[in-house]
Amino acid sequence: MNSTEGSLSQSGERAFGIYVHVPFCSVRCGYCDFNTYTADELGEGATRASYADTAILEIEQAGRSLPDAPPVQTVFFGGGTPTQLPSDDLVRVLHRVRRTFGLAEDVEVTTEANPDSVTPESLATLREGGFTRISFGVQSAVPHVLATLDRTHDPAGVPQAVRWAREAGFEQLSVDLIYGTPGESMTDWRASVEQAIALEPDHISAYALIVEDGTAFARKVRRGEVLMPDDDETADKYVLADELFSGAGLDWYELSNWARDEAAQCRHNVLYWRSADWWGIGPGAHSHVNGERWWNVKHPAAYAQRLTAGESPRHDGETIDAATARVEQIMLETRLRSGLRLDSLGTTARAAVPGVVARGLADVADDRLVLTRSGRLLADAVVRDLVEQG
């Protein structure tokens, strides 16, 4: 038994989730730095046809390492585009999670999907197989913005995909948006937000486009082929989205996420923000259990080779010490509408709180520090103040 397995067996009292990484996409988007691959980028041993069986091998390994794990509260299939796999394969993986760990009675099971990667039949199979929530990567309602992002779907087809998901019986439906794409006007962004609201989702995520090193997009920016918007424009788009979402009955519960009510919040992501426990299945997937964090080998072929040989796919890991855990708690809980508990701060960090409040960046309620809208726009600065003082 390795050191990680020894500590994992003590995890039974903590909330526990499973993340399943599906690394396949039909097209690699220029802005994306996730561990994803198109079909022609992978060799033998890492095909879509064999992927579910490989993931199941890791689930079985996880079960042996976590004999005392509580029933799984959330399962999240992300990527990549999980719905690039046949729905039957996704259901098989979920059923293996159920047989290995058990699922909580009110388990949340999410899959990400592109609007053009689903059919009424595939959605019905997922829902009947136990999936409760679907998150559509809409990103924009404007064709030229989607083209800049290398997205493949026709925005006119989004309402149809959403209707199919509702007809299949999904309990929760989410829409993902991206703002701050080069060439996106405020009018473009308003159109995207208004279309998303018109879909009547239970949940919306809206993320500012970030240029990640090593991506095709970063190279275009470096060559001056595309110009990123300035910070003021990006902030204006966030404020517009927040105003329109709030007016439609969607309240923020995390910096980039809005929901109709508490039941519509993404419980799996809340699990991350609360530093609970999860096991990440798949190439490059990260896990966090009982103070241990580790990550798998990145390439799908290497991942498959290790598992078929009966070996662990783990690449590396670390033990999280108390100081690191405290900093991460500040970074994560500050993002939440429920706020950061003041009693989690050291004396010096607490001394920084009045200054944050005086600048209009946060309020204190029920002994918690809660960001204002202005504070949400400057969340990194608030965290930096608290961490540096701590």
Rank of each mutant, 00 (worst) to 15 (best):
T347Q: 14
L255V: 13
A156Q: 09
D242Y: 06
L173N: 13
P313E: 03
L271R: 11
G129M: 11
T132F: 03
D242L: 08
E194P: 13
V138S: 02
L66Y: 02
A206I: 08
R222W: 04
D343H: 00
I204L: 03
V383C: 14
I18W: 02
P300C: 07
A161R: 04
S7W: 13
Y37S: 14
D106I: 03
C266Q: 05
D176S: 08
H203T: 02
D89Q: 06
G282A: 11
R219H: 10
M1I: 09
L378Y: 07
L209D: 09
T372M: 11
V382Q: 03
V72I: 08
A49F: 02
D236G: 15
I204N: 00
E171T: 14
L123Y: 06
V93K: 01
D88K: 15
V193Y: 10
A191I: 04
H153W: 12
I210D: 13
V211W: 04
V270Q: 05
Q172W: 04
Q389M: 13
G346K: 00
K298M: 13
S185M: 00
D343T: 00
R267W: 10
L342Q: 05
C25I: 14
F170S: 12
Q389E: 15
L342I: 04
G43L: 10
V107W: 07
L244K: 01
A156F: 05
W295V: 10
L307V: 07
V370L: 15
A379V: 10
G6E: 12
S3Q: 12
W164L: 07
E318F: 01
T181P: 01
P182D: 00
E58I: 08
D230C: 00
C32A: 07
V289F: 09
A161G: 10
R384S: 09
G390S: 02
S140Y: 03
L377R: 01
A104S: 15
T110S: 15
D40C: 13
H286S: 11
L386V: 08
R151V: 02
L386I: 08
R96D: 06
M1P: 10
V382M: 07
L345Y: 01
L94R: 04
E333N: 15
A208S: 12
H21W: 13
V138A: 08
D176G: 09
P67E: 00
F16G: 12
A264N: 04
T74S: 08
R14N: 11
A141M: 00
Q172V: 09
A301P: 12
F101Y: 01
A309K: 14
V211N: 08
G12N: 05
S122N: 10
H299N: 04
G355F: 01
L377A: 01
Q10C: 08
V364P: 13
Y207G: 01
L66E: 05
D213T: 13
V91R: 02
T119L: 07
V221E: 06
L149K: 04
S65E: 13
A358I: 11
Q61I: 00
E108V: 10
D385L: 07
A365V: 07
E105V: 06
P143K: 15
P71F: 02
G43A: 12
S287L: 05
G214W: 10
T152M: 15
L123P: 06
G63N: 05
D40R: 15
D385T: 09
S50N: 11
D231T: 12
T152C: 12
